[in-house]
Design a binder for these strands. Structure first.
Length: 447
RNA sequence: UCCCCGAUAGCUCAAUGGUAGAGCACGCGGCUGUUAACCGCGGUGUUCCAGGUUCGAGUCCUGGUCGGGGAGCCA
């Protein structure tokens, strides 16, 4: 006994002339007199199933007619190639076994608003474009982990419940942890992953991270997934070489394996084909000069063509600045050596220029913003402890972190890549919320 | 937190301060090639909530709720 189908829709081309049993859901149905057309979806694809009244019993024909949108069903029939079918193949149905005739389905093939779709997100994920996006997301993750595993990185997972704010910058979600006081949901695994780096040399963590910022933009989620490699005996140049190889490998694997999904999304893949090492590198100093030169001539920035604001050296970039900078290159661009004052406490200062640190943000093209932030970490214990104090942080909270510098410290570097931003860029989707099954946003926690 | 915008049928949206509407979805009927099918027939509402102005409010005013877009922050 088995309930499994004899094949899946994405394999249907190998079964032309044979009889198969498929199991799936009714994506759409239309009746035309003595014909019923069923678009059947099984998760791997969609195929047209044709029920001819004359070829089946009255019971089978009635069963076919009874199916509503998203009803679950097992369908048996012969596979044939037919130019009139959307996928080129169709099933000449001989048997229909409804598993469940669905109630009236709220999401129709017509247009819907964002709020309605987000309220029905648990059903929305069945739709073709969401399906393609989530499959690309899965491929991005598989490619990222595959690249790191192939390069001898060990997955080293870090805690989500943490006793203090790791970087002491953003707002965190707090929860009560038994009798031990307040715990916080991790905003990054970086500090912990550094301990694994000292153990294994090359490690990465991958998991959800949480930011309690009241961000309301198409680039932000309060819960998002980040992959954070960390490498011993590596300076910031080594770090950037790793990043450009990493990102290029992800993009090229998605292009190779998910072209059908990219086509479903109408993604222009010509821009992605350029994503190969090396990526351009510009310094923060040069970026400021470029921004101010452009701002002086009244340059405007997509998407709303507002004027590019000028910037003072020492200020962090705003979103329009990043969009402007990224638009000048045909692949992601590193902006390196930001002012020390605007970056986290653990970043290694540049020799002879203590006002800037060894770090880089990787800006994706087409307005998708920063997809990677990375740096060389301070490996000297005295300097690190001084920085912790300068930032108003309690060194006692970082005792274990300082220990890493006490016992065999080495120069090391690492970065974090946001899975959703990377996926949004590669898939070319407007809003980051579509790249995760259940987006958590300022005004959304359901479903 | 700040700025802008919105809320009317299950959905997407109309409606000079004067009878609450359409398309889709859904139901029934028709059609042997539909691709968001088409044709005919069918019913539908706390106009987000609470006040106010007015002979009369979906429409104007005040406050609130919920949501969307952006800023800042960042992945």
């Amino acid at each position: 006994m088995t309930l499994l189908p004899t094949t899946y829709i994405n394999q249907i081309g190998q079964h032309v002339g044979a009889t198969v049993t498929l199991a799936g859901w009714v994506y759409n149905k239309t009746e035309k007199g003595k014909l019923v057309f069923i678009q059947l979806r099984d998760g791997t694809g969609t195929i047209q199933c044709v029920v001819f009244r004359k070829n089946v019993s009255e019971e089978v024909f009635a069963a076919a007619k009874s199916l509503t949108q998203e009803s679950s069903v097992r369908i048996t029939g012969g596979v044939r190639a037919d130019e009139r079918a959307p996928s080129g193949y169709e099933i000449d149905v001989t048997a229909v076994e409804p598993v469940h005739v669905a109630e009236e389905y709220p999401i129709t093939p017509k247009e819907h608003g964002t709020e309605f779709l987000m309220e029905h997100r648990h059903l929305h994920v069945r739709s073709a474009k969401q399906h393609a996006l989530l499959r690309i997301r899965a491929e991005v993750i598989a490619a990222a982990e595959g690249f790191l595993n192939d390069n001898d990185f060990i997955r080293y997972d870090t805690p989500i419940l943490t006793p203090v704010a790791a970087e002491g910058t953003t707002n965190l979600f707090a929860t009560q942890y038994f009798d031990l006081g307040t715990a916080y949901l991790a905003q990054t695994g970086q500090l912990y992953v550094e301990s694994g780096m000292m153990s294994f040399g090359k490690v990465y963590c991958f998991g959800p991270t949480f930011r309690a910022e009241q961000s309301k933009t198409r680039r932000h989620l309060t819960e998002f997934w980040m992959i954070e490699p960390e490498m011993a005996f590596a300076d910031q140049d080594d770090n950037m070489v790793l990043q450009e190889n990493f990102v290029s490998a992800i993009v090229q694997r998605v292009l190779a394996r998910r072209s059908a999904d990219l086509a479903t999304l109408d993604r222009d893949v010509t821009a992605l084909a350029n994503v190969k090492p090396p990526f351009p590198r510009i310094s923060y100093d040069e970026a400021v000069e470029r921004i101010n030169a452009a701002a002086a001539t009244g340059t405007t920035v997509q998407p709303d063509d507002k004027p590019l604001p000028a910037i003072m050296w020492g200020e962090d970039f705003g979103s329009p600045h990043e969009t402007f900078l990224a638009a000048q290159f045909d692949r992601p661009v590193f902006v390196v050596n930001y002012p020390t004052a605007v970056k986290a406490f653990y970043m290694q200062p540049v020799d002879g220029r203590p006002e800037v640190v060894h770090c880089a943000d990787l800006l994706a093209p087409e307005g998708y913003g920063e997809i990677i932030g990375g740096s060389q970490r301070i490996h000297d214990m005295q300097l690190l402890e001084a920085r912790i104090r300068e930032h108003g942080l309690n060194p006692e909270h970082y005792r274990w972190y300082l220990d890493l510098r006490r016992y065999g410290t080495v120069p090391h570097s690492g970065f974090g890549m946001g899975i959703e931003r990377c996926t949004a860029w590669i898939a070319g989707t407007h809003h980051i919320r579509d790249t995760i099954a259940f987006p958590r946003q300022l005004y959304r926690i359901y479903p």
